[in-house]
Write a protein that binds this DNA or RNA. Sequence first.
DNA 1: GTCTATAAAATGATAGAC
DNA 2: GTCTATCATTTTATAGAC
Lengths: 226, 226
Amino acid sequence: MNKAADAATDRSSADASRGRPAGATRKGVETRLRIIRGAREALEEGGMEALTTRRIAASAGVKLATLHYYFDSKESLLIAVLEDLLAEMDTAYRQEVALPPAPEDRVEALIRTSWRYIQRTRNKQIAQTELTLYALRTKGSEWLAARQYNAYIDFYGHLVFEDDSDDELRRIGRAVGRQMLIGIDGIILQSYALQDLTASNADIEALIVAMRGYLRRLLAERDKHL
Amino acid sequence: MNKAADAATDRSSADASRGRPAGATRKGVETRLRIIRGAREALEEGGMEALTTRRIAASAGVKLATLHYYFDSKESLLIAVLEDLLAEMDTAYRQEVALPPAPEDRVEALIRTSWRYIQRTRNKQIAQTELTLYALRTKGSEWLAARQYNAYIDFYGHLVFEDDSDDELRRIGRAVGRQMLIGIDGIILQSYALQDLTASNADIEALIVAMRGYLRRLLAERDKHL
DNA sequence: GTCTATAAAATGATAGAC
DNA sequence: GTCTATCATTTTATAGAC
């Protein structure tokens, strides 16, 4: 069975060009989104193992059959959830965030902000990791995991420099973004597992020092070539 | 339902002191282990979502009823799988590894060795992360995730110094171990998601530089106090 | 587009023969 | 201790009324 082809048969990818492809009405789009959000909520609440279509439908305030009217299968729904997460990332990407002017200080502020966010959204973070692993496991959906990570890297990367019109700076921004994401992913898992706030706080400080140093090195290398 | 109490009712925790508590015979222990290993294999092969008791039994070369003779529930079996992983870690902990004498070089060698291992055990790594998340989700099993992480930290930490009889050095070893584990966990996720070997290799080099710097800083701080 | 009702398959778990 | 056979639910998914 070709899962990629199947995914293209549910309401999610209905082509708007051919008249009115069931699911494209105002209300239809709303319901579809309600279901996606319901799935996210159910996932955050109970984890992957407890994530059944019934629970999702209930969480979305919709009957089971309605869920299947919008999504051919549980799998295509989960894919849609990941896509929704990506779209949200895209929105955040475009939002202005108040950050210090100096790149090194911006990196530090970014890490501190992320850390605060991570601490108060435990289930959301676990859910997101579960979804990423699901995508890595699901043949034909590995690209989604890649796109998700690239979105995060761009998100961090483009916040490092105020003006990222310089190609070389963008490259450096992405390198730092990759490294920051590595550190933050690692800290997410470890902080939830160990539940030792003192230790995690120390790790955050160490990450900040390391990231400042990394950025400084990359910029120094660049200056040498100018 | 008290899951911690339930877990104590299956063959895994049968008290050896009261005669012959079903499951403690030579063959029984072997079968129990076969089932656990079968579960690990099935998990690595198909992921958490496809992990059913039937699949586990098949993978272990055992009938479904036999699985339930040894484990009261799927949950208690999964817990046992995590415990098996921990025991394995304990074994690795005690094994001698050939490493350079200087601590900074040891850290570098450790990261390179881990990186090679991670690259050739993709499914194993994903499975382990899935299990950790499962433990974090399962009420009463969070401690297992904590113990797993502490085992890893000790593993890395005690390899940083050849002689870790000094309390202060052990503390530094653990700090570096925590940080290395953070970096390695992050790199696992990112490398599998992005599938960009060139980028991941660069990230590994950056991690090495960062870890060497971190260790150097911790040791310099310590020297100041002497 | 959403619902009620139900089919069809899968799943965790048990009873009881050997 | 391991098996065959089976139960009781649960789960994904569909048919068809409204």
